[in-house]
């Protein structure tokens, strides 16, 4: 492998991290039965998107976009600002999800998806 290929791959390091995080998070959401772990997975999934947006806005050798002498190359601030919004949305979603888990635990006595499904199935039989 020539050096160029290696540096190219390393230059895309952020995006490799994004893909790994995204798939790991997605897998956890699907595979885990524990509702809290599902939320953790969902968070990992969302964080991968944050990293993706932040990497996207970065310009090589660029600094923060400040109007001052000597600063000519700067990163694109727009994706960074967008992701602030997405982070806020993510926090709200997590808070609501955790609140729901607390309520589910109160009324079912369990936060394991498979156990809850058994309880719900029995309820459906009675109804």
């Amino acid at each position: 492998m020539s050096w160029e290929v290696v540096t190219d791959l390393l230059g895309l390091l952020n995006y490799w991290v994004v893909i790994i995080l995204m798939m790991a998070g997605f897998y956890v959401v699907i595979a885990q039965d524990n509702l809290v772990k599902k939320i953790v997975g969902l968070n990992i999934f969302q964080v991968s998107v944050f990293v993706f947006y932040i990497s996207m806005g970065k310009v090589s050798d660029g600094t923060a976009p400040i109007l001052e002498e000597g600063i000519e190359v700067y990163s694109n601030p727009l994706p960074h600002v967008l992701i602030l919004t997405a982070i806020v949305v993510g926090v709200a979603t997590t808070a609501l999800a955790l609140a729901l888990v607390v309520r589910i635990n109160h009324s079912y006595g369990s936060i394991e998806e498979d156990e809850i499904q058994v309880i719900e199935h029995d309820e459906e039989e009675i109804a």
Partner: peptide, 17 residues
């Protein structure tokens, strides 16, 4: 119904995805 809670939770997971 308490099943509303799990329905909302599942919708939350799918909707957020």
């Amino acid at each position: 119904d308490r099943r509303a809670l799990t329905a909302a939770f599942r919708y939350l997971i799918m909707g957020t995805l």
